[in-house]
């Protein structure tokens, strides 16, 4: 994965920060962002990659991620509810730069049900763009190894 040097050190300090503040109570998750399902016809128009780190402390989920190389500027980003590889409804809204590369973030209060969903790998991040309104980048959230 090619993440900018700046982005990388930023996310590293973020991690350091959280681990020092929250120690054992926090759980760290990660989503690798990659293109939405493509065919050979769409493979040159559904583009980009990224990484989102999610930290759960109590019911508070802190979301911090980067994306780059999308085909057009980002319009929206969400967390959806669905088991791995099975799309599902939007459950939370994320803040996102309206650019083809940039940051995605949020601080969310999860319901208990969604905390369970998170632990069961049943949440995913999806980024929509101008030319790919149904979604351009997507990544299921797994516990960080």
């Amino acid at each position: 994965m090619k993440l900018g040097h700046k982005a990388f050190s930023l996310f590293f300090t973020t991690i350091l920060l959280f681990t020092s503040i929250a120690q054992a109570q926090t759980e760290t998750y990660r989503a690798r962002l990659s293109p939405m399902p493509t065919t050979p016809q769409t493979v040159s128009t559904i583009l980009g990659e990224g990484e989102v780190i999610l930290t759960l402390n109590g019911n508070t989920l802190t979301v911090q991620g980067q994306f780059e190389g999308m085909s057009s500027v980002a319009t929206m980003a969400h967390i959806h509810n669905g088991p791995p590889a099975q799309p599902g409804p939007v459950v939370y809204q994320l803040e996102i730069a309206d650019a083809t590369s940039g940051e995605v973030s949020a601080s969310l209060e999860l319901s208990d049900i969604h905390v369970e969903a998170l632990r069961a790998n049943e949440l995913y991040v999806q980024i929509h763009s101008e030319t790919n309104a149904p979604g351009e980048l997507r990544g299921w959230i797994f516990e960080r190894q």
Binding site: M1, S34, P35, P37, T39, T42, R138, G139, W140, F142
Partner: peptide
Amino acid sequence: SRKFFEMPGTDG
């Protein structure tokens, strides 16, 4: 008809 994507959880 088919579309393809990375398997979730495999890190690509």
